[in-house]
Amino acid sequence: MYQMFLGGALRVKAAALAGGAWSKQWRRWAPVAVLVGLCIIIGLFNPNFFGGANFVRMLNTAAIPLVICMGVTFVILMGSIDLSAEGVIAICAVAASMLVANDFTGIAIGLFSVPAAILIGSLVGLLNGFIHVKFRIPSFMTTLGMGFAGIGLATAILGGVMVRISDSSFRDYLSLGRVFDIPAAVYIAGVAVIVAYVIQERTRIGRWVYAIGTDEATARNAGIPVDRTRIIVFGIAGAFYGLAGALSAAQIGRGHALISQDRLFTAITAIVVGGTALSGGVGSVLNSVIGVFIVIVLTNGMVLMGIEPYVQKGVQGLLIIAAVALALDRSRLDVVK
């Protein structure tokens, strides 16, 4: 009988799909439309928006959120959530800043600190995934605890002080140096997006993420190692946080525990606004790229229009609510917790 319900529900859904092709297309392209619309509106209010310098500024601001979002997107596509980004980034930023020439430790391994940060990030991510899968604790709890622990660890290592980075080539290569007037961080973020896209489209893990996010039981039946995939995906997310940590340290030239403050909130806003569904299976890292630019353009626009910066968080909160409410496929869930 239960199967009959499923059958019935599916058939209804199929009918809705046939009739809703247009609305489906609209949904797919809505984030792009929103981005273009925003640019036009802000440009009308303030012509400075379209200046080259402003574009470079926005690209630079977008770099680190882009890298973070590449990680979080995979976890959300899988139907889970990762709230640990800030903590992991803090650990990795502190680690990276302590591994290059600095005023805190005697170590100076230069650019090797980048793979080191990525490695540390992915290890913490794997730990996230391991605890979540093996102890069967919901991901939001695991990663919430882990995120707090990460910030605590970063603070504890430094005892509340900051590490100053004296390795200027590290900062140049990762963030400040410019090619064609565009900062290095933007190129690195671009590479991160390409890597994420290749993982998503051209690897088994990438495809399995969608399968698990859409219907875990079917994925299991098809022989997909669901538990292992989940752990690996949290590890991949951690690797992106590691890179984001190194970029953050290079950008401000310091490492400290609060370096990633508010990053998570922005990342989730961007992903959700970009059209990736929290229920899993729907969306893409490219959606998140659009989402990041929506958030950045909006923030930039508000600054240009002279709106107080503290309002931004409120606007992001409203954006999350609006985007999720518009995009959520309510037929899929009857009990929401």
Partner: peptide, 11 residues
């Protein structure tokens, strides 16, 4: 609006 509570309250 049927949004998971952790996202709704975060927003």
């Amino acid at each position: 609006l049927r949004i998971p509570s952790f996202i709704a309250t975060l927003a």
